[in-house]
């Protein structure tokens, strides 16, 4: 069972939910931090990640002896990463998405792909808990291939929890593809509701069963709850606004350790994500 923790808005508590949920599940569990631009689950787990693997993207190199400068590769590249100049072909690696379209379009087989490393996949194991995170190299713009590399480890006999990046863009979609369930974390504020709606739209489009967790549930107004009710979105858990949770967070301590009453709430959430009936399947195939 693979469950992704996502949100529209940043700072709603994805990592808090992902970490505490993973720690509350009995039996083998793996947590994948797919927020590769700023992975932060490790701050709360303190599990060393000695196993490192480099993730790379295939980028083209031009064989100048075979290239006739026909311009097919440049026209094939929708990201404009290739300039076909009077003096020859110039590749902008930093713009290349690694799709391989240029290689296929070349009539003279003058292009081949070489791996360009974009980040690292780091893994550590502690007891029945496996932790994997992606760490994007500084200066790299493409995180989706690294997200996919982190997820390559999801063939796991147990429960997999994925911490996604905020928002609804490509890296989030890359993290959500192929999961069994999605937990959308939001907060009862106007921004929380606005971005929650975008996230709901995204998971519906991907046809994934999903439910909501409302963090700092008693701090705002009822509009998120009203919206969930109207849209038949199950509220899987509400986390009350509690200063001790924030203090624990700032000290890198999981909330369930600092606030014992949350332990049962997260265990309950763990049980609910294993039950099919807890999730909204209005968008599911």
């Amino acid at each position: 069972m693979i469950c992704a923790i996502a949100s529209g808005k940043g700072g709603t508590g994805k990592t808090t939910v992902a970490v505490n949920l993973a720690l509350s599940i009995n039996g083998p569990v793996q947590l994948l931090d797919c927020d590769v631009e700023e992975p932060n689950c490790h701050l709360f787990l303190k599990i060393p990640t000695p196993k490192k693997k480099t993730a790379s993207l295939p980028v083209p190199v031009v064989n100048r002896e075979k290239c006739v400068n026909c311009g097919q590769c440049s026209r094939a590249c929708r990201f404009h990463a290739i300039a076909c100049l009077a003096t020859g072909v110039l590749v902008y690696e930093e713009l290349c998405h690694g799709c391989g379209g240029c290689v296929k379009s070349c009539p003279n087989n003058a292009m081949e792909e070489v791996p360009r490393s974009i980040g690292d996949v780091e893994t550590g194991i502690k007891g029945h808990f496996t932790f994997t995170q992606g760490r994007l190299r500084i200066g790299q713009a493409f995180s989706s291939p690294l997200v996919r590399a982190v997820k390559q480890g999801t063939a796991f006999d147990g429960t997999t929890i994925i911490d996604c990046a905020p928002g609804t863009a490509c890296p989030v979609v890359a993290a959500l593809r192929g999961v069994d369930r999605v937990v959308l974390v939001t907060e009862p504020t106007p921004f929380g509701l606005h971005d929650f709606k975008l996230a709901v739209e995204t998971v519906r489009h991907l046809k994934l069963p999903f439910g909501a967790v409302i963090n700092r549930a008693d701090a705002g107004d009822s509009r998120v709850c009203d919206y969930c009710q109207k849209e038949n979105i199950p509220i899987l858990m509400e986390i009350p606004d509690n200063r001790r949770v924030a203090e624990a967070y700032s000290n890198g301590q999981p909330a369930i350790e600092a606030v014992p009453e949350l332990r049962e709430k997260f265990s309950e959430l763990g049980r609910r994500i294993l039950e099919d009936s807890s999730f909204s399947k209005d968008g599911a195939a």
Binding site: G71, S74, F79, H80, A81, A83, C84, L85, A86, T87, Y92, L95
Partner: peptide, 28 residues
């Protein structure tokens, strides 16, 4: 969306121009 400068440079290069006169030119 991106790569406008690169494609414009390709356009200019293929036109046979040896000099570009413009206001500003970015890095790519």
């Amino acid at each position: 969306a991106q790569g406008a400068g690169i494609q414009s440079a390709e356009n200019v290069s293929r036109s046979g121009a040896k000099v570009v006169i413009t206001g500003h030119c970015g890095p790519k």
